[in-house]
Each structure stands twice: as structure tokens, then as C-alpha cells.
Nucleic acid binder design. Sequence first.
DNA 1: AACGGAAATAGAGTTTCGGTATCAGGCTTA
DNA 2: TAAGCCTGATACCGAAACTCTATTTCCGTT
Lengths: 304, 304
Amino acid sequence: MELRHLRYFQAVAEELSYSRAARRLHIAQPALSRAVQEIERELGVNLLDRTRSSVRLTPAGKVLLRETALIFERWDEAMSRVLRTAGGEEGELRLGYIGPPTQPFLGRLLGEYRRRYPLVAIHLEERTPERVWEMVAKSRLSIGLTRPVPMAEALGLRTIKLRDERLGIVVPVAHPLAKRKNIAWRALEREPLIVLARREGVGLHDAVLAGCRAAGFAPKLAHTPSLIGTVLSYVEAGSGVGIVTDSIVAPELPLHFVPLKPTVSVPLVLVWQEDEDAPPVQRFRELVIEWQRAGKLWAKRPSR
Amino acid sequence: MELRHLRYFQAVAEELSYSRAARRLHIAQPALSRAVQEIERELGVNLLDRTRSSVRLTPAGKVLLRETALIFERWDEAMSRVLRTAGGEEGELRLGYIGPPTQPFLGRLLGEYRRRYPLVAIHLEERTPERVWEMVAKSRLSIGLTRPVPMAEALGLRTIKLRDERLGIVVPVAHPLAKRKNIAWRALEREPLIVLARREGVGLHDAVLAGCRAAGFAPKLAHTPSLIGTVLSYVEAGSGVGIVTDSIVAPELPLHFVPLKPTVSVPLVLVWQEDEDAPPVQRFRELVIEWQRAGKLWAKRPSR
DNA sequence: AACGGAAATAGAGTTTCGGTATCAGGCTTA
DNA sequence: TAAGCCTGATACCGAAACTCTATTTCCGTT
């Protein structure tokens, strides 16, 4: 039996007349007779009581009419789901990200995304940079905002760089270095440094070490906490000079950011699986790129 | 698009291979290629990523696979509902009845019915005899246990008599008439009588009046309460002689029933609409007739 | 480089689907 | 009461569709 049979039966059952139903369906009446007979034969059940002059539903026919409506409802729902999914209006987006560098724009970005594609279910996972791209590689996440991925191609991953974040120091406003336009790496040789723990981000940590090595000294790491916030707290407490990227904003704290020279950058990238074609993910990529081009990814950050 | 398309798509999506799916469906592979292409063309959506060597679901395809399962679930549910309805295993039975004469067997009868057809929803309505058959005539009830219906055929109703209930008197055990095997109508000429109100049952009330008239006297009606129980209470209180049918059992009360002679009967009938063909109703009729033949309709009543 | 496997395409045969013509029976109308 | 009309069922035919076999094309493997 096919849907056609149900469509025909439904029309007859609603019109309670073969000829009227045939007119409604724009087909000839004998086709209806046959179709209904086929259902009845296949089920072995009488659905319609037909006298020459009237058509009435049997109890089983009444039940089938109700059920038919439910089936078509499901059918329509299925089709529109598929269309919405193909159009990227429905589905899910599992986004992994690193917190501090994305904090200035992530909220607004997701707000815009949700506004455009309200039916997409958004799952967020804040992880360390390495964990984020590992999870993307394992398809545990559909897309990630993180630090560059070594051997991305070998893992079947694609990345685009959203921004280079420049390294610099954070010091209390009263600190002697706070007034400088920029600062040489050498100046940090004697300073006790506060840097994020390596396990929280190999890229950032190693970039700091590389910067120092390039300047010809080994850094004196006073503390390597697990949270950017803790770095800032140490700095505020006067425990040393913090090294962070310029994406870290803390306007409410009495701290100053001074870029290091020569410039050392830590990129922020968008990463996804090469064959990831789920429309919600594609739409998210498009939105991020659109915002990057429009310079909106850091718009609200006060320029320093 | 037809169910066939979904069946084929489902097989391909589950097997992730056209040739394996074709083997599973016992058809040739090109038919599958075509069917899936037809879905894709009709929806304008890619459902499968096919390379020469592998088939993978697109996001929309995944959604359709899930939805397809739901549709088939609904379909199966619909078909088995229809079959159960046709077989009388599902549906509803709206039964109207008069209380006192049916009380000795109705509970057991419905218990057996529910045991046999557990999916049938049973609705009960206790009403006066006239109200019961009126409601059957208006299709507010699917079947009724009541007193005979005047002009049943004209109303499109069919009835079968389940039993003739013999009229008799109820008196306190100590009453002078209590020891008699039977009693003549004439003996009631001077007695204050307690009879159920006419509005609660025209048939019974008029049968009493007719019995008296046939014996050549007009009855002295002391009370005409609305409930059989109240009749018995009046009798117990010594207010007069009650006239009831022999179906009224009150073994816990100190009352005796003595049949009247000549015998006057009030029938109990089963009534339904002529064209009522809902299987649950047909099954109920069959059960009642079966019980009547087996003499089980009053089995538990102590014979007096 | 050749082979094997998988899906797409082409062409032919068969099924089935819908159309027209017709039949049979009931209701209305003259 | 008879004729006409309407309804659903049946018979038959032509066209569309579905499926099959045969073949091609491409990828991956040996």
C-alpha cells in the first residue's frame, strides 16, 4: 500500500462520496473505487459502507481516517524538517572555544547566530586550546575557536586565522613600565613573570618562552596559574609582570597593557573537520568570516 | 512521493550501500538509484554523499532517516489500530442501563467483557428507562439495558427481550401476607401501595396500574418515591405494601417477596440502533445473548 | 597498470495507474 | 408508475512508471 491510497481514502472519507472526492482530486471516479478496494483487500477490513446512494464510514474506517491525518501530519513535519535542515535553519552546533580571547565577542556572535537560525540547538564547551581541536578532530565538536592546530591537514582539519593577538605585559597602573608605548623583551630579563600554565595553552606559553629565548635570556617564571584571571590577580597583587595577549580586557581593574617589541603573535583560529557539511556549521563559519571582514569580532574592545 | 521512496531510502541509508540495500529489498540496484534521486529532486535536497566507493548521509539525510522511522511507526500503529477496531478489540462502548434490575449481573458482565476486549473504553450511564432508549435513539449511547421501547422500529431501534420480570409485593417478614406462595391482585385493594414514581419508569408503574385495573379496582398509592431503595425503606417502616419486580434482591433486609397472580411481567430488553455496527457493540450484544442462553444473567440471584 | 567493486546510465519489458465507456441500482420527478 | 438522473462498480484500453538486464564510469586496490 502506498500513500496514494491513503490520500484517496481520505478524500472519499471526508466527502462521503466517490464522485465528489474524484472531482476534488482531479481524477476519474473509477480510480478511487479501485484504490479504496485495494486498501480494503489488503487489510481485509471494510472501511466504507457503500449503498448505491450513500457512503458511510465503518468504525474501522473512522479510525483509519483519524490515523491518516496523523500520518500526513508526521509526513509534513518530516519534509519541513528536512528542508529546514538542508537550509541550515535547524540542526545543532557544538561549539568548543577557549574562554578569555573569545570573551569580548562570543556572546554577541552567538546572539546574532541564534537570531538568524533560532531552531539550531547550540551546545557550548569551554576547554583548553588543545582539548578544543582534539575534540573537533574526534567529531565531538562540530567547530572550534582555538589556537593553531599542528598538522591540521594530516588530521583532516581545516582552519582559518581570525586574528593575530599580540603579546604584551600587564602591570599595575602605578608600575614604572605602565606608561611605555611598548617594551622590549630584554626588559623582562630580571622581572618575575606570570604566565598561563603550559597545560592550559601550549601555544601561548611556548610563544612567551620563544620570545624570551629570541631576546637571549631565560625567563624567570614566578607563577604559572591555570586561569587568566589568576594571572591578573597576581599582577594586581604586585607579584610580578603578567604576559598575556592584547585580547585580554579588564577595564575594571587598575592594570595597563603594554605591547612587547619585537612583536610576537598568537593566532586565534576557527577549526572544523574538512568534510563537516552540516548546514548549521557552515552557517556559523560564514557568520564568523562575515564578522571578521566587518571588523566586528573585537568591535567593543576599547583600543589601547 | 510515495512510501516506496522512503522504504528504499531507509534501506540505503541504513546499509550505506546501494547494492547491499538492493539485495536486502530483493530488487535490482538501479531501481534504488532512481528512487533516491527522485526524492532528492523533489525536495531539492541532497540526502546522500555518494562517491564511487562510499555512501554517506548528509545532515538532511540523517534527519530524514530519523523522521522516516517515525513515519513508519505511525503507519504501523495506524494499521494495527484499524485491524483491532475491525476485530472489535479496540473502540468504545457507551452503555446506558437502569440500575436495580441490572445490578445482579451487570458488574460480572462488564468484568467478562473487559477481560475479553481489554482495549475497549467503557462508558456507563445509569438513567431512567425512557432516558436510556432516548439516548440510544439519538446515538448518545451505543447500547442500552432498559424497559421495552414503544415504536422501536419506527425509531430505527432494535431490541431483544432478555427476561420477563414478574411483578410481586414486598412486605416485612412479619407481615400476614409474607408466608403466601403467591397473592391475588384483589388482595391489594385495601392495602396502601408503594410503587416507584412514574417518571422513573413508565413501564413498571403502568404495569402496576394495569394489574389493579384488570382486577377491578383502583390502587391506593401511599407513596411513589424515585428510588427502589426508598420503596423498600417505606415497606420496612410498615408504610404499606411495595410492588416491585422479582429482580429486586435485598437479602440483607428483613423483607419477603411474594409473586402476584395472575402474573404480570415487565420485560428487560437490550436496545441498540439498527445500523449500529461498531464491533465493540456487536461483541457486547453477542456476550449478553451468550449469557442469557447460558442462564448466567441472573445466576447469582437466590431463587425464591 | 590492471583488476574488482560500486553507483550511474541506457534501453527494454512489464506492471499498474488512470481514463473512457458501460452497467446496475436507488432516488427524484413528472 | 415510469422516466431520468445520480452514484458506485466493472471492463477495457492506452500511457506512464517501475523494474530489470546490460553497460559505462570511476575509484581504490593489488
